[in-house]
Simulated assay, not measured.
Amino acid sequence: MTSKKDFSPQNIVRILQKLEDGILIGLLLLMIFIAVLQIFLRNLFNSGILWGDPLVRVLVLWIGLIGAMVASRNDHHISIDVLSRYLPDQIKKLSHLMISLFTTMVCAVMAYYSIVFVIMEKDAGLIAFATIPTWVCESIIPVSFAIISFRYLIFFFTGLNKLFKRISQ
Rank of each mutant, 00 (worst) to 15 (best):
P9K: 04
V13L: 11
V13Q: 10
L16A: 06
I25G: 07
M31Q: 08
I34M: 03
I34E: 01
L41V: 04
R42K: 11
R42Q: 10
N43M: 09
L44R: 06
F45R: 10
N46K: 08
I49G: 10
I49R: 06
P54Q: 11
V56M: 04
L61I: 11
W62M: 03
I63C: 01
G67W: 02
M69N: 12
M69V: 14
V70Y: 09
A71W: 01
S72Y: 02
N74E: 05
N74T: 04
H77N: 07
I78Q: 15
S79I: 14
S79L: 14
D81A: 14
V82R: 15
L83G: 14
R85C: 12
Y86D: 14
H96K: 08
L97E: 06
S100L: 00
L101E: 03
L101H: 05
V106F: 13
C107V: 05
V109M: 14
V109A: 15
M110H: 11
Y113N: 15
I115W: 14
V116R: 09
I119H: 12
K122F: 09
A124F: 01
A128M: 03
I132D: 01
T134M: 01
V136I: 05
V136G: 01
S139C: 08
S144E: 03
F145I: 06
A146S: 09
A146I: 00
S149C: 09
F150K: 00
Y152C: 03
L153M: 09
I154G: 00
F155P: 00
F155H: 10
F156K: 02
K162I: 10
K165Q: 15
R166T: 14
I167V: 15
S168H: 15
S168I: 15
S168T: 15
Q169N: 15
Q169K: 15
